[in-house]
Structures are given as C-alpha cells and as structure tokens.
C-alpha cells in the first residue's frame, strides 16, 4: 500500500470513527444515568435523516434551517421515547426495561417502513459538503474533514454543559448516585429528559452526517451504526463521555484499516466490532477510560 492510500484510509477512518463517537455519547450518557442500553438510540439516526429530508424536500427549507430543525426534533423524539418506553418501567426489573427498549427500536423502524416505505431515499447533500479538495495527491471530500471537526466542537460544547452548568452538575450527580440525587430533591425526571435531549440531538447530528456520507436513507439505516456506536462506548469505558469519543475513533480507524490492510477480510467487516467488544469484555471490561462496569447494587 502506498503512503498516499494509507493516509487516505486513515482520514476515512477518523471520519467514520468520529461519527461512531458522536452516536456513542448518547449511549454512554443514558447508560450513565439509567444503566440502560437504549436500543432505540440508533434508530434516532434514521429519524433525524428522514426529518431532514422532509424539511428540505417537503417544506423547501434551506439545509441550514432543516438540519438544526431535524436535530431539535430528534432531541424531542428522544425525550418522548424515554417517557413512553422507559419511564413507566423505572422500578421494574432490568430485563423488562431492556425488552421495552428492543420493542421501541423495532417499533420505530417498522413505523418508518409503513409510513415512509422501504425504498431507500436519496439524501439531499448540500453542495457545500460536496466539494473535493486535492492535497498532496489526496482527493478528500470536505465532508470527511468536517465530520471530525464538528464532532469535536459538539464534544466541547457538551463538556461545557456538563461541567459548567447547573443541569450538568445534576447530571453528573445522578450518574454517580441515582438514589441519593433523588433524595437531595433534584428533579430527576428533568435531568433524565435533558440527558435524552442532549444525547439524541448528538445522535441526530451523527445521523445527518451519516446520511450525507452514505446518501441512502432507509428505515433500518440506524441499526448497524447504533450497535457499533454502542460498542465504541463500551470500548471507551461506559459512562465516560470523552471515552465514548475515543472509543468511536478507535473503532472507526480499526474497521477501515483492517479492511485496507487485509482486503480478504472485507466481508467480515461487520463482525469486527463484535470481536472487539468480546475482547474488551474479556480483558478489560472497564474499557479504556476505565470506570467500573458492575451494576450498582
């Protein structure tokens, strides 16, 4: 492999990884507070992508209005998801909560299938992101460069909210000790709502960038990015936001590079993430940024 191709793949890997990271943040935040894998999180990518499409095509809104609108709608959708599927089960056994999450995921996908049809829709990529720059013999889509930049800026913004605002402080308290926080008179439902709003909005940003990268939008487009983002969150150490992004980068890079270096493994690409997951759980179950993974007793 020439250095140029290697560099090209490295950039692709970083770009893909930053998308995983962005989606992983939502998993890690919800897990941090509710100790729940929000199975339907990946489907929010799909929801965001469709919402963006309809804002652009149906309401003829420019992309710089449509995309934020779609992100906001997805954030609200996240809150709705919690209220409908998880909130009634706060005191139920964990297995019920998880089953509800799986049900919610299938429901979202199949409602989309019924309402919007199974034929993939083309995503209207704004020309701005279409440009290709040539650099040292590399041809790179600007989107590939924007993606990690946007991810890192959103991460900075999120960290600011979490460490500098009152809501953020309450969120951190809740993820450390749910019961005590409840006793201290903090409105946990609001904190959970904020968590879902933030996590889902980031997933929406990820979904829109995903749809620009692979401009085929269909009801099941969120399943694999969702699963892989979750694995990224475990890799980075679940509950840890920076860890989720680092895990995302590592997973994206790993996926791209392993296929680049060993093309005969290309057909196993989708299994790679699970192999990583199993290795992490076997050898370092706390992930890279290592907080303990055990259930709170």
């Amino acid at each position: 492999m020439t250095p140029t191709i290697f560099l090209q793949q490295l950039i692709n890997g970083i770009s893909l990884g930053s998308l995983y990271g962005l989606v992983a943040i939502g998993y890690t935040m919800v897990y941090g507070i509710l100790r729940l894998i929000n199975f339907a999180h990946g489907d929010l990518l799909m929801f965001a992508a469709y919402t963006a499409i309809y804002c652009v095509t149906l309401f003829a809104l420019p992309w710089y209005v449509s995309f934020p609108a779609a992100i906001l709608m997805t954030g609200l959708m996240g809150i709705l998801l919690d209220r409908a599927a998880y909130k009634p089960l706060r005191d139920a056994p964990r297995i019920s909560l998880l089953i509800s999450a799986i049900g919610a995921s299938f429901l979202l996908e199949n409602v989309a299938l019924v309402v919007l049809g199974g034929v993939p829709k083309a995503f209207p990529r704004p020309p701005l992101f279409d440009q290709v720059i040539s650099l040292w013999g590399l041809r790179i889509q600007v989107l590939t460069i924007y993606t990690p930049v946007i991810t890192l800026s959103l991460l900075m913004g999120l960290l600011f909210i979490i460490y500098r605002t009152k809501a953020g402080k309450a969120m951190r308290a809740a993820s450390k000790d749910f019961e005590t926080t409840r006793l201290m008179g903090i409105n946990l439902d609001r904190i959970i709502a904020v968590t879902f709003l933030l996590g889902s909005s980031l997933a929406a940003a990820g979904g829109i960038m995903w749809a620009m990268k692979y401009p085929q939008v269909n009801p099941f487009m969120g399943v694999f990015p969702g699963l892989k983002a979750f694995i990224a969150a475990v890799l980075g150490g679940i509950g840890n936001i920076v860890g989720a992004v680092i895990g995302g980068f590592l997973l994206g890079l790993g996926e791209i590079l392993i296929v680049a270096l060993l093309p005969q493994l290309a057909q196993y690409r989708d299994a790679f993430a699970f192999v990583i997951l199993i290795l992490v759980l076997l050898f370092r179950p706390t992930g890279i940024m290592g907080e303990p993974l055990t259930d709170k007793a």
């Binding site: 599927a85 089960l89 509800s100 199974g118």
Partner: peptide, 22 residues
C-alpha cells in the same frame, strides 16, 4: 397491502405487555 404493518403490531404488543402487563 402495507409492508411492515405486522411488525408494527408485534412491537406494539411487546411494549404494551411489558409496560402494562409485565
């Protein structure tokens, strides 16, 4: 016919049972 409708019904049944009649 509406493809996917069956699954909508199934997922709704699953969620309703798990939430209201665990």
């Amino acid at each position: 016919g509406i493809p996917g409708m069956r699954m909508v019904v199934f997922s709704l049944i699953l969620m309703i049972v798990i939430i209201f009649a665990r």
